[in-house]
Write a protein that binds this DNA or RNA. Structure first.
Lengths: 198, 198
DNA sequence: CCTACCGATCGGTAGG
DNA sequence: CCTACCGATCGGTAGG
């Protein structure tokens, strides 16, 4: 539990910066020395907050999750369950990616691709976060179906997979090809796609 | 042009191995020392083939492209242009990912996520390969439309974006959650999706 | 294509 | 929370 009684505000500033860096260079590319230098503190001082690089990585993921909840989940929950919440959830995600809340685009896209073929606690934490997200989208779709706002035979798992596909591809295309039109392509895909399920 | 007159067969063995490692740990995670140790040669001996880490990374991308052409593009080109070629292209891609031609799943998915927020020659090479792929899918779709096998008002860019979305999401979900069902979800999505365009 | 090395940086620790 | 350090590893080079 190294560092837990320390200044919690400073800790969150460190972790928010770590998440920004990791969205661009990955959680392995995030080095304690570079992070310390950017924050103007000593390497061992920063190290003391976490105790190991792996703990820093895990704490960074938790901080990124709280940003994700505030930017993507909460805006969707401000709308009542149903098709409008599904639309709002997709739009919140695209806006979160497009506004570059993390400078490297979606934090979880970056670290998922980095750790999807590895093993260990960091990979497990990334996988758990990914599963939470899939389940939340699926539940949001299933609510809309049960309310009669999507066709009764809608396969919620299938539709959630398809919506997530469009969103993540917009993120990567916009980053790699510096093409903001990818977001409009995703919005068109989502709009047309939802209309085939109604 | 360091190393070009050397044994070309040995060079390709090195690069194929490098592509396997990079699909799991990334092109930055690929270290010359580790690669040399795995191949049982000295670090400086291996280094002499490439002259710099960046040249090794660029050569690895070119080798991965030739694998991709053989595994994904050529099977599609063995079918005449039209809707059947579109279907074959998607199936070749899903098979390439699912058979783990590269142990970390699609090589280009891994290195795209790694370099999409960076700059430099490696990023540019990854982006150029990605653009080639998008254009090939778009052209394959457009051929089918012009042959009257997709609706006349089909937007080839849009449909290519949607098909690629499904394929890439299957790759990452299957890796992160060890869920081969992701490929069936992508196949269902592609089948249903193509039928809405006909 | 090898051994042996360079300076830089890595994660992590000792001591204060 | 600092300075100063540890051994390991990085990309790259000298010399043969």
């Amino acid at each position: 539990m190294a560092g837990r009684p320390r200044d919690e505000g400073a800790r969150q500033v460190i972790l928010r910066r770590a998440a920004d860096l990791a969205s661009q260079d990955g959680l392995e590319g995030l080095s304690i020395g570079r992070l310390a230098a950017e924050l103007g503190v000593s390497k061992s001082g920063l190290f003391g907050y976490f105790g190991s690089k792996e703990e820093l990585q895990l704490a960074t993921i938790r901080t990124a999750m709280s940003v994700y909840v505030a930017e993507v989940i909460e805006p969707a929950l401000s709308v009542p369950p149903g098709l409008e919440r599904v639309r709002r959830l997709c739009e919140s995600w695209l806006s979160y990616s497009q506004r570059r809340v993390f400078p490297g685009g979606c934090f979880f896209f970056a670290v998922t691709a980095e750790f999807d073929a590895r093993s260990g606690r960091v990979r497990d934490a990334v996988a758990a976060a990914g599963l939470d997200w899939i389940r939340f989208v699926t539940r949001t779709v299933e609510d809309a179906r049960q309310l009669g706002e999507l066709a009764g035979d809608t396969d919620a798992d299938q539709l959630a997979f398809e919506l997530i596909s469009f969103m993540e591809n917009a993120n990567v295309v916009s980053l790699l090809h510096d093409d903001p039109g990818a977001y409009e392509r995703a919005r068109t895909a989502i709009r047309n796609h939802l209309s085939t399920y109604t």
